[in-house]
Design a protein around this nucleic acid. Structure first.
Length: 340
DNA sequence: GCGACAG
DNA sequence: ATCTTGTCGC
């Protein structure tokens, strides 16, 4: 895998990501006066009803591309809901002006709801990409071969995003150095699709590190790996794309159930897919130190087994909630982001 | 009505 | 993730 040109990988990956915002704008512009749709219907049309929250967040932003038409999007209950102007009354007046009947703040969707066409090359495409993503053949992971451990994270400034990767010695505690890369995050944050927001910048950074001969032997990624609705979190994709063994480290649970009733410091507890599937271990929760009540959620990314994964993370735990490589990457990227 | 999902 | 004042604790 070392022969991969990460600069080419970066370009190819970015080229395959659709403009999800353009898709929503297009759908909203297609709603004629007198008709409405719902946040959930828009999300379904994009290919994933789980994106309805993002759709609502986007359309409630006065700076969104279709703020002048977003009054035509209401709640699935028929309630008018909020408006980007800040006033639901304004939304009501706009709709009434277009001939929509509103009783007690509610629209009869049977009458006014518009059938939206499915957007083929949208979230449905990315979802299929995640399901079908073929990771290259994985080499057996040998901790004894590890000379450096990396941690990678992104922070967001006013306009720019900064990806930072800290490199540590094999002890997981001694910092060698940090690399950073600045760019624009074009894809929005949608639960389940974090990879498409953050990986493009990560790949640019890793390409630079590759050119400098400074790629880490294993990489801790801020986010999940196998612990993901489709078992394809950002850590797994980033590893599969680069060939670098990866581990996902998240601060919140996205799915799955922690079996143990309580967590003890330093003890790894399995996270299962569900009570009905107790044999499917997606990852592990661990309380990283005494001073926090909040665990971290660790899952296999690419090119590593669960046992090695735990050994690597154990080496990296110190006085912070996050493993040292990610702690330093987070600190560095955040510091830079605050200036742009 | 309650619960809610990485960054 | 970011927006934000003071406040509690090591």
């Amino acid at each position: 895998m070392a022969h991969l040109d990460l600069s080419e990988v970066a370009d190819a990956f970015a080229a395959g990501i659709p403009s999800i915002i353009g898709q929503v704008d297009q759908l909203v512009r297609a709603i004629p006066p007198g008709s409405v749709t719902t946040y959930g219907d828009l999300a379904k049309s994009l290919g994933d009803s789980a994106a309805s929250r993002w759709v609502a967040t986007y359309l409630l932003d006065p700076a969104c591309g279709v703020a002048d038409l977003s009054h035509r999007v209401v709640r699935s209950t028929g309630e008018i809901g909020l408006h980007c102007s800040g006033s639901s009354e304004t939304k009501t007046q706009l709709l009434r002006g277009e001939g929509v009947v509103i009783n007690r703040g509610t629209i009869d969707l049977e009458t006014h709801r518009l059938q939206l066409p499915p957007m083929v090359a949208s979230l449905s495409k990315l979802k299929a990409w995640q399901r079908d993503f073929a990771c290259p053949g994985e080499q057996a992971f040998h901790l004894s071969n590890v000379k450096s451990i990396g941690g990678i994270d992104v922070s967001y400034g006013k306009e720019q995003a900064i990806s930072a990767c800290a490199r540590m010695q094999a002890d997981g505690q001694t910092k060698i150095g940090t690399h950073t890369c600045t760019g624009e995050a074009k894809f929005p944050y949608i639960t389940g699709y974090l990879a498409f927001r953050e990986i493009p910048l990560h790949l640019h950074l890793l390409a630079e590190m590759q050119a400098a001969g400074k790629l880490p032997d294993v990489l801790l990624v801020d986010g999940n790996g196998r612990l993901h609705p489709r078992r394809m979190g950002i850590a797994t994709m980033l590893g599969g794309l680069t060939g670098i063994p990866t581990i996902g480290v998240a601060k919140k649970l996205i799915c799955g159930v922690v079996q143990a009733p309580e967590l003890k410091v330093g003890k790894w507890e399995p996270i299962i897919a569900s009570q009905d599937a107790p044999d499917e271990i997606l990852g592990y929760a661990i309380m990283p130190h005494t001073k926090t009540k909040h665990p971290i959620y660790v899952s296999r990314g690419f090119g590593i087994d669960d046992t090695s994964m735990k050994e690597v993370v154990d080496r990296c735990l110190a006085g912070h909630r996050l493993p040292e490589p990610i702690y330093w990457a987070d600190r560095e990227s955040r510091q830079l982001a605050s200036t742009r």
